[in-house]
Design a protein around this nucleic acid. Structure first.
Lengths: 222, 222
DNA sequence: TTCGTCATGTAATGGGTTACATGATTAC
DNA sequence: GTAATCATGTAACCCATTACATGACGAA
């Protein structure tokens, strides 16, 4: 049971690890901080929270009324329900963080995984980045061959769409290349200690993300 | 009834307009020509085809056995089922093509709409392109403000993710700008006849897509 | 006092996948 | 003769949305 979505569960646990929140706020964070990718509705979020509570990964805390009001009482005054990560929940999240299987670099998952790279160990980060890159590269390969095979049968618009799509993927590959490179550089210069560890090292924090992307192009001009 | 998906229905009708096909082939075209965006499974495609037949927009033709074998007979020899667009289906597709409402430029729909721009009238093309552009621009606006509001609370990775996401959107906007520009140029130089027409002009074909993107960057090097 | 936003939920529905079941045709 | 791919379908499930219902709180 509780084969709940994965991605939402992951994101919720990750956000709650930073600080307790109630559902409404959680949803906003989901759609801004991590957002761009996915906008979850309450109809998804609240049932998910319930399930996480049922699993013992979260606890509900009713702010305001300290003890005796059950919070879920119908018709009684409704209180905000603040969700807090339990130790078991934290453990579970770290367990999830340590996985780097194929599903970690598929389209839907990759973004969220990346968003929590700050909490992820360096070697898992590397595996996920490289996994995604090779995923994209094989996709590129497929696009290229299918493009040359069907070349003449497609009109200009379809062709242009194809071209733009390929360029987008190529662009993401370049992005990944830069990230991987700076991850590699970061490891070399700062951490030979955590090198050959394979068991999930819970307590030890990652040590802070490397300052990747030397020549940042964030400048808000344009 | 038949509030089937929209996007699949649209793509199927569009592909079958070019030439009759059976389901299997249809699906491959869906995932290559138009693909990149969406991969439909048979569990989606075949029921959809049945529904389109029920609507009178397609007819099934059994290749091989000309007349008396019902094709859907169980245990009988199974024949390929070729689907062909009916006149009603063609009419319906053109009706769909002429719509340029907000759902035409949302993420899921835009790609498919664009793929059939070859069959779309120039003014609808313009509306869709401009609609998408302003959609993306308002999204950019939201991202920018949410970025400056929460700036310091985000770690490097989240920030980088955000930055890359914004850059992707900006890139698509630039792409749209080019397309819109060349559409505009194309209209000026070739067709003052179809200018101020607002009713959907069914019969009249578009007259062929303009050779947009003068300096093509398709070169397969790199 | 009303409007907007905060806040929590549920039931119906939608749109799609996975896994399964079946069989024909082609290439080796 | 057997493996791969072509080819068609169904049932069970999954994830999420929509629309709805409820209500608190602050500002105009």
């Amino acid at each position: 049971m509780s084969r709940r979505s994965g991605i939402l569960e992951f994101a919720v646990l990750g956000l709650l690890r930073e600080s307790p929140m109630h559902g409404y706020e959680l949803r906003k964070r989901l759609n801004t901080s991590l957002g761009v990718f996915r906008a979850f509705s309450y109809g998804t979020l609240y049932p998910c929270l319930k399930a996480l509570v049922a699993n013992g990964w979260l606890v509900e805390e009713t702010s305001g009324a300290p003890e005796d009001v059950p919070a879920t009482t119908l018709t009684g005054r409704r209180a905000k329900i603040v969700y807090r990560l339990t130790p078991a929940g934290k453990e579970h999240f770290e367990e999830l963080l340590s996985h780097s299987g194929p599903d970690a670099w598929e389209d839907e998952h990759f973004g969220v995984r990346f968003a929590f790279f700050g909490q992820t160990s360096r070697d898992v980060r590397m595996r996920v980045l490289e996994g995604r890159r090779s995923r994209l590269e094989e996709r590129l390969e497929k696009m290229r061959t299918s493009l040359t095979r069907t070349r003449e049968r497609l009109d200009d618009y379809t062709l242009e769409l194809q071209r733009h799509g390929m360029e987008s993927v190529e662009r993401e590959v370049r992005w990944l290349n830069e990230l991987i490179e700076s991850e590699r550089a970061g490891r070399d210069q700062r951490a030979p200690e955590a090198a050959a560890q394979d068991e999930h090292n819970q307590s030890g924090d990652t040590g802070g993300p490397p300052r990747h992307r030397g020549g940042s192009r964030l400048d808000p001009s344009e």
